[in-house]
Design a protein around this nucleic acid. Structure first.
Lengths: 172, 172
DNA sequence: TGTGACATGTAATATGTTACATGATTGA
DNA sequence: TCAATCATGTAACATATTACATGTCACA
């Protein structure tokens, strides 16, 4: 069966970094520009176990008392990862959901003053999120392309909400 | 407790359309520009039941044999909806996840020819999704603002993937 | 009379979150 | 020695999907 987004990303991280721990995986995922992905312990550890059971990764345990578990990608894991990468289904290429967009869809349900306040707050928060999204040093080539994409996307959301504010002044 | 995205959207739809059936709700959600939202029967019917139990909506049953259940928003539902609308938490205003972006993050894991193929396929599919997103007639004012946002966002994804293709030719 | 749209629901499963629980290692 | 970080996990719960199951109504 196909990999989920998180499984694909986890496999990619394990592959690109060589020996990784589940703990590191969590932090890497949390650092990603998308704040929706929290990758809590309750997600990552069962996920790692599932990948291991499916023989997509192997686990080596250190000899010391702590017994840190390092994850390694296996041949089947590489194949599964590539299949996931090359998947261009509508779920991948279709417009991603946007909670602000969903709310704007119902803008007309608010009173004029509520709507104005909502749009002002939204613009402010979209902007402050954007400001936080600086490219990090040490980013690899493809990481920087991805984080560029995240910034462009967020900038477009800001431009759009400004347009909404302008258009909103008309029909109300 | 706060409403989920689907609950908020469902309440908004029930409010804006007056008497609605769960079945209509499903279709409306499926028609939305975001293909991720399927709102299957297994989602919508339990969700409607939950809203009813929480006294956010009421249900009226027709007298005929079919007994169609029409949904109506209640005062507590209106309050919950407005609270949901005005929520500007990072989960709402942060960059939404984008599966193509996630994959581009791992572009360097592909061979040169695989990468080229991936990017070409992605651009083609992003474009064909965009082409499908025409504004529908009969859209309300705020619906058209939302669908404009969806198109702008998708267009930006296309522009970005083109940039990735150009930049990608350099370091490889 | 039969087909397609209308209409409602359940069961099994998948996926992910929050909160809890534990212990090792490092450096001030 | 104490605090922060490293490190692994479980339990209860929430949310959503797929597939299945059932029945009505309009109309050709």
């Amino acid at each position: 069966m196909p990999l989920t987004e998180l499984e694909g990303a986890a496999l990619g991280l394990i592959w690109s970094r060589g020996a990784t721990t589940a703990y590191e995986l969590r932090k890497l995922i949390a650092e990603s520009p998308t704040p929706q992905w929290s990758a809590s312990a309750g997600t990552v550890y069962p996920l790692v176990e599932k990948l291991r059971k499916g023989r997509l990764i192997s686990v080596s345990i250190t000899e010391d008392k702590r017994g840190t578990r390092h994850l390694h990608i296996m041949p089947a894991g590489k194949r599964a990862f590539k299949t996931w990468m090359l998947d261009c289904s509508p779920a991948v290429t279709g417009v991603p959901p946007d909670p602000v967009r969903t709310r704007v869809r119902f803008l007309e349900m608010l009173s004029s003053s509520e709507g104005t306040r909502f749009l002002a707050e939204s613009e402010r928060n979209l902007r402050s999120q954007l400001a936080r999204m600086r490219p990090r040093k040490g980013e690899s080539w493809s990481e920087s392309l991805a984080s560029l994409g995240a910034r462009l996307s967020q900038r477009k959301r800001v431009e759009w909400i400004i347009k909404v504010r302008k258009l909103g002044r008309g029909p109300r």
